[in-house]
Simulated scan of single mutants.
Amino acid sequence: MYRFKGFDSAECGDSMSALETLVNAWMEAERPRIRYMCQSMRGEHILLSFVYEDTRELEKRVATQAQTGVTGGLPRIYDEDLIDECPTSPRIPVTPPPMH
């Protein structure tokens, strides 16, 4: 799930170093997987906007998939069925039908 986080330089007295410290502290604490970043102006203030994924949620999802045997979006049972049937699967022709 994507989340949004915004920073306004007005919160830091318009100090670039204070804004940088605030953003870096958030990044170190949350370890976000940033998907989109935007910098814009609001009057005399700098706005930084981030769209990110929470890495803790990602780690939980991966751990759950590993525990349930889901790999590549499909349960392992499907992977095994495909291995057993290929390459002579009756559902998938070896040569494509002729084009008219």
Rank of each mutant, 00 (worst) to 15 (best):
M1H: 08
Y2A: 07
R3M: 07
F4Q: 12
F7P: 00
F7H: 02
F7R: 00
D8I: 14
D8W: 02
D8P: 02
S9L: 10
A10R: 13
A10T: 15
E11N: 08
E11K: 05
C12V: 15
G13N: 05
D14W: 01
S15R: 12
S15P: 02
S15K: 03
S15H: 06
S15Y: 06
M16I: 13
M16H: 03
M16T: 06
S17C: 00
S17H: 01
A18D: 12
L19W: 00
E20K: 00
E20N: 00
V23Y: 02
N24W: 02
M27I: 10
A29G: 03
A29N: 12
R31V: 04
R33E: 11
R33A: 09
I34D: 04
I34R: 11
I34F: 09
R35N: 03
Y36C: 01
Y36S: 03
Y36M: 04
M37F: 06
M37C: 11
C38H: 15
Q39M: 15
S40C: 13
M41G: 02
M41W: 11
M41Q: 11
G43V: 10
I46W: 07
I46F: 09
I46N: 03
L47Q: 05
L48W: 12
S49C: 04
S49G: 03
F50D: 10
F50R: 09
V51G: 00
Y52H: 08
E53V: 10
E53G: 02
D54H: 10
D54G: 05
D54I: 10
E57A: 13
E57D: 12
L58C: 12
E59C: 13
R61G: 05
V62G: 00
V62T: 07
A63F: 02
A63T: 03
T64E: 15
T64Y: 06
Q65T: 01
Q67I: 01
Q67M: 04
Q67G: 01
G69N: 11
V70M: 15
T71K: 10
T71C: 05
G72H: 08
G73Q: 09
G73N: 03
L74I: 02
L74V: 08
L74Q: 07
L74R: 08
L74D: 01
R76L: 15
I77T: 07
I77E: 12
Y78V: 13
Y78M: 13
Y78D: 09
D79R: 14
D79G: 03
E80Q: 11
E80R: 10
L82Q: 08
D84K: 13
E85F: 08
E85M: 14
C86M: 13
P87C: 08
P87W: 05
P87Q: 07
P90H: 04
P90E: 12
R91T: 06
P93M: 09
T95V: 15
M99P: 05
M99Q: 14
M99E: 11
M99K: 11
H100R: 14
